[in-house]
Amino acid sequence: MSVRLILPALAIVALALVPPLAPFLQVLLTLAMAKGIAVMGVTLLLRAGQVSFGHALFFGIAAYGAAFLAASPLDDLLLLLLAGALGAGIAGVLVGLFVVRYRGIFFGMLNLAFSMIFWSILEKFYYVTGGADGLRLPRPSVAFIEMDRGPYEVLLYYASLLLAIALGWFVVRFLASPVGQLFQTVKTNETRLEYLGVSARRTLLKGYVLSAVLCGVGGVLMAAAQGIVTPSYAYWIRSGEMVFIAVLGGAGSVVGAFAGSIAYELVRSYAAAFAADAWQMVLGGFLLAIILFAPGGLVGIYAAFADRIGARRAKSASKKEAGT
């Protein structure tokens, strides 16, 4: 087995054992995986050379959609997930049709503008959205079976883990597929892409909708775990956090999205208390440091480390061969 795969494999096993062995981490890691799924959406766009400062929009749309549905008789976790993903996907098509006409600065900022519009709608139309207080999302049934809080949280944890693995696997496959490869060429040469007979906008739109759906799934999971949705779900700080985690984990890396969000949540829950007023500042400083000094992020650091061990093993193996 390749050295690089050892840690991710161990991590999955460890994550699967958390509820029985380390229940105190369960809620925290549920949130980390929900965010990780959403961060994958930002990661995906980074692969096409684009950064969105407004993807919390889809996170928020799905979460609010789930909260509305939860207030109806259809309050089942599976339906909430489906509806959230669908809602985020539709919003992704509508917003995407507009933003895929732009790249770079405009792409990033227009996404930010859309999310700020949605955020101010959430704040202003309080008679529908609950304003700054948000909406409660009462514990839904799961496959129409009512559950108590304890088992529900365990189940939500495993659902998040499963979705993280399944969606992560899907995104990796997508990126390696012909459509996914065409999508990534938006980063390097749109002239050639056009002269291959492919519309850069349409190919970018496909990835954009996928990224919106991923943010949507993350948003519903987070809402289901917290039991409440607020405008902060769609605020720029949430978008910035997603971008931060994507870069922290390793810009463009799917595994990095999860490594980044788990590292982020752990540090946040234990260290944020010491820097409660300066949390954004700490993040900003870290972001600068990563961009300037470790552009590969956590995944890059690990890969360099694993390659060094791999190279050392190969060296000692060849020495042994030479010795015999």
């Binding site: 496959r173 012909p178 459509v179 007979g197």
Partner: peptide, 13 residues
């Protein structure tokens, strides 16, 4: 990929 327009997201290029 551009010529054939293959859409399957699970096929490795």
């Amino acid at each position: 990929s551009a010529r054939t327009g293959r859409q399957s997201p699970l096929l490795d290029m």
